[in-house]
Amino acid sequence: MEADTCKQCAQFFSVPKDADDYEAGKADCVLEKEDEKGKYWLSKPVTENSKRCDSFRLKR
């Protein structure tokens, strides 16, 4: 079956249960980016049912 939600993405990291912003199904989407100045990482809140985006990488 083709993965189509954030939950199946390798960049999906569930928010721990003891975190201030914990909600069931909530996660951090952490992306590694690179430009001419170098690498950097971005973290954006997502939910497990969010539709996959162009940066989707299947979790293995």
């Binding site: 170098g38 690498k39 950097y40 990482w41 971005l42 973290s43 954006k44 809140p45």
Partner: peptide, 8 residues
């Protein structure tokens, strides 16, 4: 909701 940034 905002995106966070971390650099090397």
């Amino acid at each position: 909701k905002s995106t966070l940034v971390l650099q090397p």
